[in-house]
């Protein structure tokens, strides 16, 4: 069996700084859409930080939860695609073939996490942002869906390098942009098929649970719930 890439996100460590969101935009050539379009719900953030509050001000408990594609093993987005643009890779990722996408947006409706994004217009970048496009990532044209790839370009680069050096990919060698940029190390990426990888060991934590697991989607991201959420915030 090949690699099964997965992620663990420790909500106790997430400060909601959104560095992951910025890093993701930069790494994956995600176009910004401007304030008006964003207000209309057309912003494309492959990863977003959801904020949940409990209680009344000033006694508020806040939970930040980074939500990105959960790379489900039984992904509802995949079988509904009429052209196989949305499919499952051998390494357990929800692949999206931009060139094969005709824009039915069915995958986005079927996705319970709302982590699929549609190009309502052709992408455009304000100057000088157009000069920082990542040459390793294709730019998506109008009318196609796009989504988090777990930074596939980085995974592939590491795998090719490892193969050239005739070795396996080392645990921790691959870091998607969001993981790399997280100042509190709240996110850990790794191979779930290797029981000794850091991600596998953390995912086994008693705090671990998966987002809306009850839908039967078998997500590959494990959230470590906030312990302080249940106890005293300042303890």
């Amino acid at each position: 069996m090949g690699h099964q890439w997965g992620m663990v996100i420790d909500l106790d460590r997430c400060t909601g700084c959104e560095a992951c969101v910025v890093a993701c935009h930069a790494e994956n050539n995600i176009a910004t859409v401007g304030d008006k379009q964003a207000a209309g719900g057309r912003a494309k953030h492959w990863i977003r930080v959801e904020r949940y509050y409990e209680g009344d001000f000033p006694d508020v408990k806040v939970k930040f939860m980074p939500v990105l594609c959960q790379q489900c093993d039984a992904a509802p987005c995949e079988p509904v695609c009429p052209t196989f643009a949305s499919y499952h890779t051998d390494e357990g990722l929800n692949g999206q073939i931009y060139n094969r996408c005709i824009g039915t947006r069915y995958c986005a409706n079927a996705c319970p996490y709302n982590v699929r994004f549609f190009n309502f217009y052709n992408p455009a970048w304000d100057k000088p942002l157009d000069l920082q496009l990542n040459p390793d990532v294709s730019v998506r044209e109008v009318g196609v869906m796009e989504k988090c790839t777990f930074c596939l370009q980085r995974i592939k680069a590491a795998e090719i390098e490892a193969a050239a050096e005739k070795r396996d990919v080392k645990d921790g060698e691959i870091q998607p942009a969001c993981v790399q940029s997280c100042p509190t190390n709240a996110m850990v990426f790794g191979d779930l098929s290797d029981p000794h990888s850091r991600a596998s060991r953390m995912a086994a934590s008693s705090r671990g649970n998966k987002l809306m697991e009850e839908l039967g989607t078998r997500p590959k991201i494990t959230y470590l719930q906030r312990e302080s959420w249940n106890g005293d915030e300042n303890a």
Binding site: Q37, R105, A108, N109, F117, F118, N122, V142, G143
Partner: peptide, 15 residues
Amino acid sequence: YDGLGVTGLNRPVFW
């Protein structure tokens, strides 16, 4: 010509 941006569609209301 412009794209589906000319509609009122958005995320999550894709249809």
